[in-house]
């Protein structure tokens, strides 16, 4: 039976201008990655300072310098439309690599923050 679940993966950003690389393993019963969303505990920091590269199964989904604000969503968006839809993403080795870069920006002074990557996943259960 197919089931849609949402999973959250966190990165802690502790230093201004730093690059944080993390690797996450998706659950074994995941058959498809449907969509992605970025949020943070300090949205202004993520909105103004963040950019990232995301790979799933070695396939580059978002390239370096792709700004985080383009993957954020507001409360004015209906919950079903908040995620950015991904198509034809093979799950393969079930490894997601995130390379997050904090960039200095005139509008936002740095303080440590958390970046959360939400994935909408399709799982197979017996």
């Amino acid at each position: 039976m197919k089931q849609i679940i949402k999973k959250r993966y966190d990165l802690q950003i502790g230093e201004a201008g730093s690059v944080k690389r993390e690797q996450f393993e998706l659950d074994k019963n995941v058959s498809k990655v449907n969509a992605i969303l970025l949020t943070s505990d300090k949205e202004d920091q993520l909105y103004n300072r963040g950019s990232q590269k995301i790979e799933i199964n070695g396939q580059e989904i978002f390239p370096e310098k792709y700004e985080s604000k383009l993957l954020m969503s507001g409360l004015n968006v209906s919950p079903n439309d908040r995620f950015y839809k991904l198509e034809n993403i093979a799950v393969g080795n079930r490894i997601m690599k995130v390379e997050y870069t904090d960039n200095n920006e005139a509008r936002s002074n740095f303080s440590a923050y958390r970046v959360s990557v939400y994935l909408e996943l399709e799982t197979e259960t017996n």
Partner: peptide, 17 residues
């Protein structure tokens, strides 16, 4: 920023495709 989010004025709106 939070207030703006609550007031539903974040600039990026996503739709299907």
């Amino acid at each position: 920023f939070r207030l703006q989010a609550l007031n539903c004025s974040l600039p990026f709106i996503f739709h299907k495709r």
